[in-house]
């Protein structure tokens, strides 16, 4: 899935907007927004947003740009156990996602899974996913989706994926100078409300980042979007803004979410918000259907609306590049 026809051929499928100033290039930003979800790559470097086409040429450019840093992949919403018409074979599409990861021109250092690993929190569903993801040979960090904590407040999830986590499953870790924060916003939800982090987790978060220098790049990952994507469908987090207020001092914050089963991106100040494809089934665009449930598309189109996100951090460049690619 590429957009070569949208790009200037003289630039070999590559458009850069480097105006050597710190403001975001408005034209580049808008183009990037237009391509979001259709195979574009958006990179922020020193506050300047650049756009690249997906494909071997752009991939080659990115590879040659790497001077250290790290590279990881986000996958989301595997919904193992789902077997309805929107995707009768979620095993096959998760395996296709694994093939996609293994075929990346540059192997990722690790993988983030942003929740809804299972559809019904069954041990056999978690087992299936674990077995399939083994083929990546990568370390994998998980956060739970609401489908992973259905009947036991997340006890089984934490037993499997969160042994060193705090509270209901939150934790943080460092990789190559980037600070990663795994948040849980799918438990103790209040009637009429959205996703929720809760006071204990917010307190922990404030403390977790207090000692960090403002130059440290931050990556936050959680299942439900921390930003208000579409509250009418519950696509947001009630106390997400509170969490983000603790991250204001940092120059580079990237927030990675799942839950909405489609790619969306928003840049607000130093914060880039991004949601990933599902590997199982698509959901409608906000407000495009009566409800947010699984969306049936013609079977030959299914793998075009499922996929993975490849994330690239360039050391000393203050940059996190996000590439969404569909399964085909």
């Amino acid at each position: 899935m590429t957009n070569k026809n949208l790009f200037d051929s003289k630039a070999n499928g590559l458009i850069e907007h480097d105006h050597n100033h710190d403001g975001i290039d408005r034209r580049g930003f808008l183009k990037c927004m237009a391509w979001a979800g259709t195979g574009a790559l958006c990179v922020i470097e020193g506050g300047v947003l650049k756009s690249y086409a997906l494909g071997s040429q752009a991939g080659g450019k990115m590879k040659s740009r790497k001077v250290g840093g790290l590279r990881f992949v986000q996958i989301s919403d595997s919904h193992m156990g789902f077997n309805k018409p929107a995707n009768p074979d979620v095993v096959a599409t998760l395996k296709a996602a694994v093939d996609k990861i293994n075929a990346l021109p540059e192997s990722p250092d690790f993988i983030l899974h942003t929740g809804d690993i299972s559809h019904l929190s069954k041990p056999s569903e978690f087992d299936n996913v674990d077995q399939i993801l083994k083929a990546t040979n990568k370390e994998i960090f998980f956060v739970p989706g609401e489908h992973d904590v259905l009947n036991d407040d997340g006890a089984m999830f934490r037993e499997r994926y969160g042994k060193n986590s705090k509270g209901q499953g939150w934790y943080s870790f460092d990789k190559n100078g980037v600070h990663f924060i795994a948040l849980v916003n799918v438990m103790n939800l209040k009637a009429g409300g959205l996703g929720a982090l809760g006071d204990d987790q917010l307190e922990w978060l404030e403390d977790d980042v207090r000692h960090l220098k403002s130059s440290r790049p931050i990556v936050v990952f959680a299942h439900i979007p921390l930003w208000s994507v579409y509250p009418q469908w519950g696509w947001g987090t009630d106390d997400g803004a509170q969490a983000l207020s603790y991250l204001k001092k940092f120059g580079s914050v990237t927030v990675l979410n799942g839950h909405v089963h489609q790619t969306m991106q928003k840049v607000e100040g130093n914060v880039t918000f991004h949601t990933a494809f599902s590997t199982a089934f698509p959901q409608p665009a906000p407000g495009a259907a009566e409800g947010p449930g699984p969306m049936k598309v013609p079977s030959e189109q299914l793998r075009r609306v499922l996929g993975i996100t490849d994330v690239n951090y360039l050391e000393n460049r203050h940059a996190l590049g996000l590439v969404d690619s569909s399964l085909v």
Partner: peptide
């Protein structure tokens, strides 16, 4: 949801289909 969406691959057609079947 499943039955209603089965024959409508294009999301643009959804509001129409849904309003008809819901009535």
């Amino acid at each position: 949801m499943r039955r209603r969406l089965l024959n409508s691959g294009l999301s643009i057609a959804l509001p129409l289909v849904l309003s008809m079947t819901l009535a």
